[in-house]
Write a protein that binds this DNA or RNA. Structure first.
Length: 425
RNA sequence: GGAGAGUUGGCAGAGUGGUUGAAUGCGGCGGUCUUGAAAACCGUUAAGGAUGCAAGUCCUUCCGGGGUUCGAAUCCCUGACUCUCCGCCA
């Protein structure tokens, strides 16, 4: 959520940001409603001040046994006027709110302007020693490998639930679990994060707080009876841990890491991209969330991105970092790096992580503030998150990059102590 | 699922219609005292909004929403959550 005062004072800046994000510009309507709102406030507050002092007088008169019926009649009239004005005011405020919640966060000034994913900018690439993009022999893709080695079963997943709900079997399940544990341990021990196991269903307030609602309602599973959503990412419950709280400056930065299953309807995105793990409705992800002081948030963005990269370096998976252009940024993000891992079978990069700075956009929605040590003033924290990482796409890269000419898969060295075996055959 | 109790400021906890934004205690901050610290004592201590260059003035807020009233933390309705007991269950 943007600050209405900021919009009022910088309408052109806001309009530009909205345009660069390909979102709907309602700034003129917002400013008009804001003026209306403030004019109603001025009127109604004037009357309320009048009523408050008169009510006090009436109390005095009654106490001393006098007759206050004239004042009471007058105040009844004033009360009716207040009721009318209040009604108008809340009507205007509702309209204003309904526009404001659709205004996206503005891109940071360092973000390249662009329309779509084609305009994202590659920042750097990391390739393991000896890696080459050319494959002399045919590489099996992850679905073929999964079938051959009996470690993934997409067909049975479709039977018991529907397409896009993968089943991991045997060593596949063990590898998945090893990967999750490895990533959690790494972030906890080497990067100093605190582990959280949050609920997988959350209420509307939480979904609003991180910016999934109202825009992305159609992309989420909803348990209608209880009006609860399954989480599309652990970002939602973990960031909302501190909703409506005031933190102390010396508590910051707060670094959380959590593993959860994630659920996405991916409405309207069926197609060739949906093979195997490439697009699923349920997947596993280790997510990092940071609550930080505003002045540090861009350093923290670099840091959280590095934390995700460290995992890939340890696994020796080739990856590249993209800086998303304005048009490809999510609704709530001000700046975002995507990490893509290499898939030799698809012969392309697959998004495995997304690290974003939301500045105070989510903190405003979720009302997460902190008290500054210096002057005791309150301010909104900045929130960040980054996948560290999503296992589905990562599993594609591991299976494909670590396969032997015979179609077996070597377990990455750092995972071997977690799996207890070195090869899947 | 059934029955009951509760939700007040950073925390604990008073307050059942009229200077109650809210007693008191703790905590926090400032000060006195002290070589320093502790103790003791004194003072101070909410957030959001409107307006204003500012000082200030005003409005709102006692879980959320609605109502009664000239006036509500206080009365009524409703929703959420918490706790206790019973039932069911991993």
């Amino acid at each position: 959520m943007l600050d209405i005062k900021f919009i009022r004072e910088n309408p052109e800046l806001v309009k530009k940001g909205i345009k660069n994000k390909n979102e709907k510009d309602t700034v003129d309507q917002i400013i008009e409603l804001d003026e209306k709102r403030r004019s109603f406030i001025a009127q109604v507050e004037e009357l309320k001040a009048q009523r408050n002092s008169a009510s006090q007088q009436i109390g005095q008169i009654k106490k001393s046994g006098g007759d206050a019926s004239a004042q009471i009649a007058e105040m009844k009239r004033v009360g009716d006027m207040i009721a009318d004005l209040d009604k108008n005011l809340s009507g205007v405020e509702e309209q204003l709110h309904n526009l404001l919640i659709w205004i996206p966060n503005l891109p940071n000034e360092t973000v390249p302007i662009g329309k779509s994913a084609d305009d994202n900018v590659e920042v750097r690439q990391w390739l393991p020693e000896g890696f080459t993009f050319e494959n002399e022999e045919k590489v099996l893709d992850h679905t073929e490998l999964g079938k051959k080695l009996k470690i993934l079963d997409f067909e049975r997943g479709a039977k018991i639930t529907g397409s896009g709900f993968p089943v991991y079997m045997g060593k596949g399940a063990q590898l998945e679990r090893a990967l999750i544990n490895f990533m959690l341990d790494y972030h906890i021990k080497d990067h100093g994060y605190t582990e959280v196991i949050p609920p997988l269903l959350v209420n509307r307030e939480s979904m609003f707080g991180t910016g999934q609602l109202p825009k992305l309602e159609e992309d989420m599973y909803l348990a209608e009876k209880d009006d609860l959503f399954t989480i599309p990412t652990a970002e939602v419950p973990i960031t909302n841990l501190h909703r409506n709280e005031i933190l102390e400056e010396n508590q910051l930065p707060i670094n959380y890491v959590g593993y959860t299953a994630c659920f996405r309807r991916e409405a309207g995105s069926y197609g060739k991209e949906s093979k195997g793990f490439l697009r699923v409705h349920q997947f596993n992800k280790v997510e990092m969330v940071k609550l930080v002081k505003p002045e540090t948030s861009y350093d923290e963005l670099e840091s959280i991105t590095n934390d995700a990269e460290d995992i890939l370096k340890a696994l020796k998976i080739p990856y590249r970092i993209l800086m998303l252009c304005s048009g490809d940024l999510s609704f709530a993000a001000a700046k975002c790096y995507d990490i893509e891992t290499w898939s030799p079978a698809e012969n392309k990069w697959l998004e495995a992580s997304s690290c974003s700075n939301f500045e105070n956009f989510q903190a405003r929605r979720a009302n997460i503030r902190y008290r500054k040590t210096e002057n005791k003033k309150l301010d909104f924290v900045h929130t960040l998150n980054g996948s560290g990482l999503a296992t589905s796409r990562l599993m594609v890269s591991i299976l494909e990059n670590y396969q032997t000419p015979e179609g077996k898969v070597i377990v990455p060295e750092v995972l071997q102590k977690y799996t207890g075996f070195k090869i899947i055959d």
